[in-house]
Design a binder for these strands. Structure first.
Lengths: 335, 335
DNA sequence: GTGAAAGCGCTAACAT
DNA sequence: ATGTTAGCGCTTTCAC
């Protein structure tokens, strides 16, 4: 299926490809008449330039790669939405790559990106990522890179995060103020920047209420719902189970609700629950879920905007950009 | 930032670019020794071929475009997941394009795809799409195209759908069997293939129960939550409100739950609700939601697999591929 | 077994 | 105002 090319237009119009090219980019060195002829034919033949050819020539792909752990998660889905809203305006295309929380996959994906497939990269690292040399390598090649949400603290580049420390602090304080005395903290990976920040916020809130944190109350969960179910029913059937739970990951909310249901622990009476979640249905849960709601869409927009600034050679502030989350109080922490 | 190219490798090794290229693709015409030298240097310099250059040469981009209405929706997010799982294995890349339910955007996106940016297209049309000439044009250019979920019936190409008629039929029958006498049917666009199919299934179930359908019970909703809220509270505060509701779109579930909450209509006693939804949290809603759960991940996998078959020139069955949804009965339709 | 040369579709410097 | 030429980085005949 012979696609329409510049050359075909040129031949048809008895012009050179250079002239046609210039006419299509509305160059001032081309006469109005010629421009019109070119435009008319291009229109008629449904000509669309091959982006890879011009990209090759200009050494830019007008494509940005978005690397994230998963897409079937309301936070990441909303981030993509935010990214797309800006990229599309700028005529950029979005390549989505999922790591499924695997460090190996993340490495492979970044390696693949060295060849010039994308002009810039937006990344939220996998929960397994401890070493960041694969990312640094890309950076040294001069490819602009912006972290969002899950950052590598040891890499100096633009970052967009939410106030993880503060929101965990607020969540914990809220539970304590509502009478909880033993608050469990559920997280996935201790290596993640966000887990660490949130954990510190949690500890600080406990300390500010003259409570000391217990290692056994900080519960590491997994990506496997079945394993999580075991872990969480285990937690809630301890001799002294927590009377408050903070699920710092959306998918752990389901786990803790189910565990409580199964053990016939009534939320919020026997245990109060807060979830870091962007689910629109939080208000419809049984009971409605008190959440830390993250500015997912805005984070996506901010991250891609920073990336564009870099691509345009404008200066970027050294400090991570922080967009606050909000505590939305609902039934799961009612008195 | 001078990227590593074939030419650089060649110069360094005092070989021609042709030899290096062949060595890298493990051609049998190259000696083992040379191959090893090339591979070693490539490794050392972190060489990654420019995909657009080879794409230009080979006239394939190893990229597929996925066009969908939105991403912040559990169905579409899971579809993407399924698509990625296969594409990634085949070394293909995924370009995501969102129409936000706009026909105009859909046209623009497809137009942009004419230039060879993608080797194939997966699409679920916008709710505004009535005319399909923009899609047909791409098809005539010989670009393989697979529809998923929301198809254009008048375009002959591979399609992956779920059993919309049957699942709506089942949903309706379930409500009738649970004692509902007046079932409302909420949908977004009458132009969508899936809306039509579901509507027919709904009507058929009513007919099979000796009930005639009422135009006023088939309620067209929008994409705007505020407008939907008005529509749905209007519906539920009629003189004779429905005692059963089928929300054929995930986002309408929230709307109907909230409307009932506000009007103090108790689900399932005063009204029973079924939602077409893939939300993992359906079981946690208040009350837990009876759903038609669609095989989103599988549909994504199936669609991209069909696309690969086409790309490989293998034959495709003319019939749409149908992957069944399942009715999951929960609290919102309890007796 | 290796290399020279052409060309994918486009653009930009440099003629004319 | 238009054309010639060269080249982006790669692959693929076709020679040697």
């Amino acid at each position: 299926m012979g696609n329409i090319t510049l050359r075909i237009l040129a031949r048809e119009l008895k012009l050179s490809t250079a002239t046609v090219s210039k006419a299509l980019t509305n160059s001032h060195e081309i006469s109005e008449k010629t421009k019109q002829r070119v435009l008319d034919l291009a229109q008629k033949l449904n000509y669309t330039p091959n982006p890879y050819a011009s990209g090759l020539r200009n050494k830019k792909s007008r494509t940005i790669a978005v690397i994230l752990p998963e897409v079937a998660d309301s936070f990441f889905a909303q981030v993509i939405d935010g990214i797309e809203s800006v990229a599309q305006e700028k005529g950029y295309h979005i390549l989505i790559r999922l790591t499924h929380e695997s460090f190996q996959k993340e490495q492979a994906i970044l390696k693949d990106l060295r060849g010039g497939r994308a002009d810039g990269i937006l990344i939220s690292v996998s929960s397994e990522t401890r070493d960041s040399s694969h990312i640094r390598e890309l950076q040294q090649k001069g490819i602009p890179l912006v972290f969002f949400d899950r950052v590598c603290e040891d890499i100096e580049t633009a970052k967009v995060v939410t106030d993880d420390f503060d929101s965990a602090y607020q969540a914990t304080r809220h539970l304590l103020q509502r009478g909880c005395r033993r608050v469990a903290f559920l997280y996935i990976s201790p290596d993640l920047s966000i887990s660490y920040q949130r954990m510190e916020g949690y500890k600080k809130a406990l300390a500010d209420h003259q409570l000391s944190w217990q290692l056994s109350d900080m519960v590491a969960c997994t990506h496997d719902p079945v394993a999580n179910h075991r872990i969480l029913t285990g937690l809630m059937s301890r001799a002294h189970p927590p009377d408050g739970v903070i699920a710092t990951v959306e998918k752990l909310v389901t786990g803790i609700y189910l565990a409580c249901q199964e053990l016939e622990l009534r939320i919020p009476w026997q245990v109060k629950v807060i979830g870091f979640s962007n689910l629109p249905s939080a208000m419809l849960l049984n009971p409605s879920l008190t959440t830390i709601t993250q500015p997912a869409f805005e984070m996506g927009k901010a991250a891609v905007s920073l990336l564009f600034r870099e691509l345009e050679g404008k200066p970027i502030s050294g400090e991570p950009m922080v967009i606050p989350s909000v505590l939305v109080v609902r039934g799961s922490t009612a008195l």
